[in-house]
Every structure is written in C-alpha cells, then in structure tokens.
C-alpha cells in the first residue's frame, strides 16, 4: 500500500481530501479540461463553479476514477486515482449530474443492490436501505418504480445511494439543478449536515448563490481552466468594492446630486438617465453619512437608496466574460488570470 510521498505537501496526508495538479482531458481536438489544479481540505465544502461546458463534470469524473486523465495527477486522501483506483473508490461517493440509479427498479431495490455490492449482508442491506429512505424522506415511495419519481426524489435517492458506505469524500455534480427552491434548500441542509458528520464535499454548480451559501472555497472553471480560486469573500473582493445606488425624486436635481456624490465620495459616479439612478463605488461606508447629510441640506429628496455588494454573479461574469474576449486576443489572458487568482 503505497502512501504518497509526504514531502510533496506541507501538510499531513489526511488533511487534503483532494489534491489535483495539471489535470488534462482531451476529447478529439477539444481540450475539455486543460490543466486543472484543485486542493480540497478535508472536512470542508468545496464548490466548483463554471458555465456550461466548462469541464466541471469531466473534472469530477477524473477525480472519481470514471475517466483516466490524459495528463496530470490527482490524489484522494493521498491515493492516486490512476494507480490505486480501487482504494479511491472505497473512499468516495459519487452523485453524477444525471441520475445514477436504476430506473427500472424501486428505490428500496436500488439501495439494497448497492448495499450488497458494497459488501453488506442480506439483512444488513435491507436495514441500511430502510434507514436511508427514512433519512431522505422517501419511505412512502420506497416500493414505487423510479419512473414515477419527481426530479427531487430522484436526486435524494441518488445522494442516499452515495452515502451507503459512509464515504469520507462525496462528489456532487450539480446536486440541485432542476430542483424547486424548497427542495433545493432541503438539499443544502442535507449537504451541510453531511459535512458536520465529518465528510468532505466537492460539488459543482452553475448557481452562484449555491456556492455562496454552501462552499468554504470556490474554484471558478472556464473552458477547462481554473480562472479564479479562493473563499467566497476573496473572490468578491477581487471584483471590486460595494457600490452605492441613489435615485432622486425630481429629475431636475440629478446634476446637483451627482456633483455632491462625486465630491463627497471622491469618485466618478455613473448616471443612468432613464432610471434616474446614480451609481458610485463606495470604498468607505462612513462617507455615506456625510453624503446623506449634504443631500438633506441641499433639499434633494431621495426616492430610493441601496448598497450593492459585489455579487458572485459579478465575479462570475467578470471572469468568464473575459474568457469570451480571450478567444479573440489570447495574449491578454495570462496577465488577467494572474490578477484574479492572486486574491
């Protein structure tokens, strides 16, 4: 049993649930994954974020031993996914993007078969299946064929099946795509509870609020590359500061109001005349008090005021929109990438 060389990492082997360096997967002349590095600390939730076709699923499939990387390496708790796949499989649970359960069987039958495959005895498998169905609120539907399951039920069964062996690392590929808001919130709860019990979760998502809500760290993937990595706050910070938005009651006050904003906040504001809205970046929240007092003194009445924190959406768009431009001028790429990854 060859444990990996400890000197390669500064931390003990079981601190990293996932370590991947330079992962590459090529389909024909399409480089679906183009040198992805990932490091996931055990006991955390790690979000992999990216637009359609970014290479999220392909990356997960390589980490889960379902696909062989063309280059690079990956280790799960220190075990190499290519050299020791059977060990890695004993440490992971995988819930794929598309339901990985047997459509023609019932929920109970599915769980019993997976339990038996994982080495549980007949009675033990039955008990485990009942237990998980109960846990995921599927007991009533247990005997029905999956054909009549809703998307949410299928997802939950899928996750339940991944938990039979109580794996320390769980891959969830878009766990809430296609779920209604309530079911999504339930899924989030489940994922949080999983991590509380000591598991590590690596999930992919296209929903920024999901990553925002769940993930301790995030990697943004675009066209097979990690274009940004860090905590949610770090990523938001990399895009910019919060912005102040003001709408004045009378359009005739617009110009005066704008002058004041520029003066007090010391920045150049932007005006959108149709909406009658002034937007200015707000580096120091304290200055807003001054601004409001000045506006009151000048008898300029506000219709609306709001502070816009940079959302992960902006991070996402900033980084991946750049990706689109990149296609035209590849030269800028490295420069910008550095800027974002050094958060």
């Amino acid at each position: 049993m060859s444990k990996r060389n400890a000197s390669e990492s500064t931390l003990a082997h079981d601190t990293w649930a996932v370590e991947a360096r330079g992962l590459v997967k090529q389909f024909g002349d399409n480089r679906a994954v183009d040198g992805v590095d990932l490091t996931v600390r055990a006991g955390t939730i790690y979000g992999v974020l990216g637009p359609n076709g970014a290479g999220k699923t392909t990356t997960i499939r390589m980490l889960a031993t379902l696909l062989r990387p063309d280059a690079g390496w990956a280790r799960i708790f220190g075990y190499d996914v290519v050299k020791e796949p059977q060990i890695v499989r004993q440490l992971i649970g995988v819930t794929g993007q598309y339901a990985s359960v047997d459509e023609s069987l019932s929920a109970t039958e599915n769980l019993i078969i997976f339990s038996r495959l994982l080495g549980l005895g007949r009675a033990e498998a039955k008990r485990k299946a009942a237990e998980l169905l109960e846990e995921f609120g599927l007991t009533e539907a247990a005997k029905r064929p999956l054909k009549n399951f809703s998307g949410g039920m299928r997802r939950r069964l899928d996750l339940a099946a991944s938990l039979i062996a109580q794996p320390p690392l769980i891959f969830l590929d878009e766990p809430t795509t296609g779920l209604d808001p309530r079911t999504r919130a339930q899924m989030w709860d489940t994922i949080r509870r999983l991590v509380k019990t000591g598991s590590t979760v690596l999930l992919t998502t296209q929903y920024l609020d999901e990553a925002d809500q769940l993930a301790d760290r995030i990697a943004v993937i675009d066209r097979g590359r990690v274009v940004a990595e860090g905590t949610v706050d770090e990523l938001k910070l990399s895009v910019g500061t919060s912005s102040l938005q003001l709408r004045v009651q009378s359009p005739t006050d617009m110009d005066r109001a704008r002058q004041m904003v520029d003066q007090v906040l010391g920045v150049k504001s932007v005006v959108s005349p149709e909406a009658g809205k002034i937007t200015a970046s707000m580096a120091n929240a304290d200055q807003v008090t001054d601004l409001l007092i000045r506006l009151r003194e000048a008898r300029i009445h506000l219709a609306e005021m709001s502070v816009q924190k940079p959302s992960l959406d902006e991070v996402f768009l900033t980084i991946t929109v750049h990706g689109v431009k990149e296609r035209e001028s590849a030269a800028v790429e490295d420069e910008h990438e550095l800027e974002v990854t050094r958060v």
């Binding site: 060990i87 339901a99 990985s100 459509e103 994982l118």
Partner: peptide, 10 residues
C-alpha cells in the same frame, strides 16, 4: 447513468 455508479463502486 447507473453504470457510472457501478464504475465508481469498489
């Protein structure tokens, strides 16, 4: 999809 699960099991 279920074959993906079979492949990911030990």
């Amino acid at each position: 999809g279920v074959f993906d699960r079979f492949k990911s099991l030990p």
